[in-house]
Design a protein around this nucleic acid. Sequence first.
DNA 1: CCTTGTGAAGATATTCACAGCA
DNA 2: TGCTGTGAATATCTTCACAAGG
Lengths: 206, 206
Amino acid sequence: VAQRIPTATVARLSRYLAVVEGYLSSSISSEDLAVRAGSNSAQVRKDMSHLGAPGTRGVGYDTEKLVALIRRALGLGAERGVVIVGAGNLGRALAGYPGFARRGFRICGLFDISPGLVGIDIAGHRVHHLSELDKVVTNPVAAIGVPEEAAQSVAELLVAVGFRSILNFAPILVEVPPSVEVRQVDMAMELHILSHRLGRAEDELD
Amino acid sequence: VAQRIPTATVARLSRYLAVVEGYLSSSISSEDLAVRAGSNSAQVRKDMSHLGAPGTRGVGYDTEKLVALIRRALGLGAERGVVIVGAGNLGRALAGYPGFARRGFRICGLFDISPGLVGIDIAGHRVHHLSELDKVVTNPVAAIGVPEEAAQSVAELLVAVGFRSILNFAPILVEVPPSVEVRQVDMAMELHILSHRLGRAEDELD
DNA sequence: CCTTGTGAAGATATTCACAGCA
DNA sequence: TGCTGTGAATATCTTCACAAGG
């Protein structure tokens, strides 16, 4: 009975997947999974109920089935392609991310416009010129790792050639049609949140 | 009446700050701010009420006061230091992030252990050996940009020398005492969320 | 008028607590 | 007995709608 899965659950599924794939036994209890994923058992069970995962009372969840179910819920039928735009430090860091394959992704394109970068190899992938972006075939997710000034035009190009999912690391809000999903990863925002809490701790005077 | 500010609000304050600092007029309406920050006016007004920001009916919020209030709420009294551990691609990308100063942060240390990296300059900052981590003085936030295998021990070192706020880019859950705040930035998780939505869109058959 | 400030309503998310099944 | 599955209780977050103020 796989219905709509709450986004909060989807975010946790990602972590569950990593835990379960690295788990040795053939079944795992909600408590065990929770501890390893930094959650709690009630939460895990609720999430599993959204997944429609079949647990065995007194035992736990079958790890193999769980992996398959989570992968399916995460849209990782076979493997999901990732295109990286920008071959500077950020693009390299992304391309060099070791967990791609393990977590269900495959780099299917690395693009830049700088003549000094096009043609070189990074982490085993040739950098192509951005003008060849439309050659990408599967239905991939794109990661934008270019400087702020270029991010909006890169986003527009991505949309123009058919991308519907964009992960933006540039610290600006890119505008895209509503049919395109964008997720923003903003280091400054994360730092601000931490700083806010530090500030509250420093006060101690509520 | 500055009480506890909801975390969801804090996250948005970060974006509001960027908008308001780049705003030319001396006051800004909730609607205007909302559009620029990718939110909506009701949300903005609720957030402002948590901030205790004094708006003027018929006009909007005084931009100058707003900047000061948001900065204070984000714990950016003067400037908040950031220490970056790891001088590989990720660390370089972090160090090269152009918006640091503009968004209230200052790099106050860049560390690694690799002999090939210690001593070189990155984005105008000398890389120091990790053993000198305890020389850092202010009350900074630390960003972990080292490979997965090293992340846990770096986190422990950070805690040992007194850090209480950590932004972890390594794709593992680091364990720290409850008094230390950790935020996790996990690219795989973001990709999973996007992939999940793509999967649902691909189905069309609910 | 235009826009704030906010109580109330609605939507989401988390936690509790316990019945039910291997 | 041990652990799942889940309704009910709670907490958190967002949106609505409108009174009140410049």
